[in-house]
Design a protein around this nucleic acid. Sequence first.
DNA 1: CCAGATGGATAGTGCCGCTATCCGACGAGG
DNA 2: CCTCGTCGGATAGCGGCACTATCCATCTGG
Lengths: 214, 214
Amino acid sequence: MRLGELSERSGVSTATIKYYLREGLLAPGRQINATTAEYGEDHLRRLRLVRALIQVGRVPVANARQALKHVDDDSLGLTMRLGAALWELPQGPEPDEADPATAAARAQVDRLLAELGWESAREIGALSPVHRSLVGLVALLIRLGYPCDAELMAPYAQLMHAAARLDLDRMETYASDTEKVELAVSSAVLFEPVLRALHRMAQEEESARRYGIV
Amino acid sequence: MRLGELSERSGVSTATIKYYLREGLLAPGRQINATTAEYGEDHLRRLRLVRALIQVGRVPVANARQALKHVDDDSLGLTMRLGAALWELPQGPEPDEADPATAAARAQVDRLLAELGWESAREIGALSPVHRSLVGLVALLIRLGYPCDAELMAPYAQLMHAAARLDLDRMETYASDTEKVELAVSSAVLFEPVLRALHRMAQEEESARRYGIV
DNA sequence: CCAGATGGATAGTGCCGCTATCCGACGAGG
DNA sequence: CCTCGTCGGATAGCGGCACTATCCATCTGG
């Protein structure tokens, strides 16, 4: 497959594919001669993942490059590869330490983790980008006047834990670490939005049941 | 409160506040004379919501304006106000009807709704932006080679339905429709990211329990 | 054998969320 | 009463970023 066919089958313009090649998002094809390169099915697949990252996940090109580098880099263990790849994807806001709401938010998050018994999350604590962005988000909600304490979050956290168990069961069906990391990246970019859509649909459904469609 | 104080208490530059006033994201203050306007606590609160929409929710300015218009417009019933406001917030991708994966995705979504017994979601069907974006997302996952059928989604949908029940219980504690719509908008922009953070944290926690922190 | 595609390089475009600057009109401190 | 800082209002410009348009020498396929 050459550039034109890759473009046609992916729906991405040749100019854009060249741009991705330049930016290192896509590995160069197998060089046939000075003016021709051959691309395979894996290039098509990777190109689709790149498009999903950038267009659906709104991941900046530089972060997408880093995340994909971790997908391909098999010199690390699974846990580190997963963490490194997912940390490149957009997170919530950084907490504003000058804001008193941040301290209150951190206290609630710590209480939540204690109640849930999420020991490893407590150990990692503020080192984890996810933990930090959670604190930042809760602080913003508090500043807007919406209560967001451990009691409120706990039942949601239980639901998300159930979802996480389903996620890991699914991940275990893949043999290689590379496939697992790619699944994790694809899921963060495409399956989390699926969850969000299901959530909003469920809200509409439940609202219709309680109040009617009027 | 005048412009400078509003800027200081919100952490938003005066130039940016003026820009939001120009764009109609923020109601003008009460005019004292030709060169002075007075702002209240509600302006501060609305300004913080605008920042959350734009910076955290990455909502384009034009959509944020529309969404906030629906929050303030009490000429409609609650259901319509909720729908109109939330439809302005970013959705997933539009399905590509030329792609055969789209048809397969639509079939799976329809099967899912039938299995779950979500009757009103089935009735609204493709008219709902949420339904359309769900189809688009599932199609992308299928094209990437990840199975995403009704059986896989059903347990996640049940979890999201449980979350939706919690959401509506919370919404019922607010008296006025305006407060309810504002809660829904704030939740879509700030609480959905909280859920996402809890989800990722739960994944890390569950992964640590199954495989250790190595 | 020649029209058209290819890889490679470089400069330019369009969008969008701000931001810098200027202006004439106030108004509080001295 | 003066004056210096701030106010609101308006307009033009900036910066980042994901592309995109153009050019070129080099192949390829009918």
